[in-house]
Simulated assay, not measured.
Amino acid sequence: MLALPALLAAGRARAAWPERPIRLIVPFPAGSGTDILARMLADPLGRALGQAVVLENRPGANGVVGAEAAAKAPADGYTLMMMGTSVGAINPHTLRRLPYDPLRDFAPIGSIAETPYVLVVPPAAPGEDLAGWIRAVRGRDLSLGYGNAGGHIMGAMLADMAGLKLTLVPYRGSTEALTDVSTGRLDVTFADFGIGMQQAEAGRVRALAQSLGRPFPLSPGVPPLAATLPGFDASVWFSMVAPAATPAAVLARLEAALGAVLADADLGARLTGHGLAPLRLSAADFGRFLERQWALWGERVRLAGLVAQ
């Protein structure tokens, strides 16, 4: 009897959710691909939920700072996080002391979009295509710049699968590495698809291939690396999650709202304009997808010979 008022109040609070603005943590800096996508989603998601969705950029340590903050936030539906490949599938295998577990500490809401990396070289690089470039540079000492963990792993994959001598050079971000490729200071990099293709179309770099294991519908003229290097397959995907103990009713409403937002044709066109293809998975399906991605990137890290730091 004494507990009944508190239980009724808690039930009313869940039924009324959301009663205040919702925080959406972006574990990367403003201007990053994750941030741009989050900003496209925030306003329509807020309208669907009846409360403002406020972005909070918490960059640092390849997404670890923001992911830790989200994992430790109250599980009341008022904190969400943008989760991508690095935070959800790569960090667990490259960082020894990870303060969160992507499979245990988060509840999936749904997936949003995916995009490949694009392999770019300077305009004057030899070879007409990827196979020709590999033949021309094999045996040379080359530099491959990377601005994130995904680029690092794929650089190691490229060196191994193509038999190339690559020195992997870390950069603060993939944009800086792309700039150095355009000036010839760097031999090759895996660039974010959107900006990499913009630079290629402007003639500042050459796009040799993209990293999905299949043709990418937004750029059918750029072949997959797998056409030359069978088995090469990697993409960047984006999703939305909440702290693990978030009430099921709140998660269901978030999943429905996100699905409605992503069904909007105007938003779809904006995503396409940024090189993002739809990746529509329900919360349950995304949970299984995340488990597969976690295992897949772990195998890639092992094959690349990378040691957790």
Rank of each mutant, 00 (worst) to 15 (best):
303 L>A: 14
236 V>A: 09
141 D>G: 11
281 L>E: 01
142 L>A: 07
123 P>H: 12
66 G>E: 07
260 A>V: 00
21 P>M: 09
177 A>V: 06
153 I>R: 02
126 P>V: 07
305 G>Q: 04
117 Y>C: 00
182 S>Y: 04
289 F>T: 02
55 L>P: 04
54 V>E: 15
206 R>Q: 00
192 D>Q: 12
220 P>K: 05
136 A>N: 05
111 S>A: 15
217 P>Y: 04
286 F>A: 01
202 A>N: 02
157 M>Q: 15
24 L>Y: 11
225 L>D: 06
236 V>G: 07
86 S>M: 09
31 G>I: 07
240 M>R: 00
26 V>T: 05
92 P>W: 05
29 P>W: 13
56 E>F: 05
35 D>E: 09
268 G>L: 00
258 L>A: 01
55 L>Y: 06
295 A>S: 14
286 F>Y: 14
133 W>R: 05
83 M>S: 06
99 P>T: 08
44 P>C: 10
303 L>C: 06
39 R>I: 05
294 W>K: 10
121 V>I: 13
195 I>E: 15
25 I>E: 02
93 H>Y: 07
166 L>W: 13
28 F>D: 11
229 L>E: 09
156 A>K: 09
237 W>M: 06
40 M>S: 12
183 T>F: 07
301 V>L: 06
83 M>P: 01
188 V>C: 10
26 V>Y: 06
34 T>N: 08
170 P>V: 12
143 S>E: 14
306 L>N: 04
133 W>F: 15
115 T>C: 08
182 S>F: 03
7 L>W: 13
95 L>C: 00
80 L>A: 02
125 A>G: 05
125 A>F: 04
186 L>E: 09
40 M>A: 13
206 R>S: 01
25 I>V: 15
128 E>G: 15
300 R>Y: 14
282 S>L: 02
105 D>A: 05
279 L>V: 03
216 F>N: 03
142 L>K: 08
97 R>W: 11
67 A>N: 12
158 L>Q: 07
202 A>I: 02
36 I>L: 14
179 T>C: 10
287 G>L: 03
146 Y>W: 13
235 S>T: 12
1 M>P: 10
283 A>M: 02
137 V>E: 15
40 M>N: 10
66 G>N: 08
202 A>L: 10
123 P>M: 11
101 D>R: 14
191 A>H: 01
74 P>S: 13
188 V>W: 03
94 T>Q: 13
173 G>Q: 10
288 R>V: 10
267 L>V: 00
29 P>M: 09
9 A>D: 12
65 V>G: 02
287 G>I: 04
97 R>Y: 11
22 I>T: 02
239 S>E: 10
241 V>Q: 12
255 E>H: 02
201 E>V: 09
82 M>T: 12
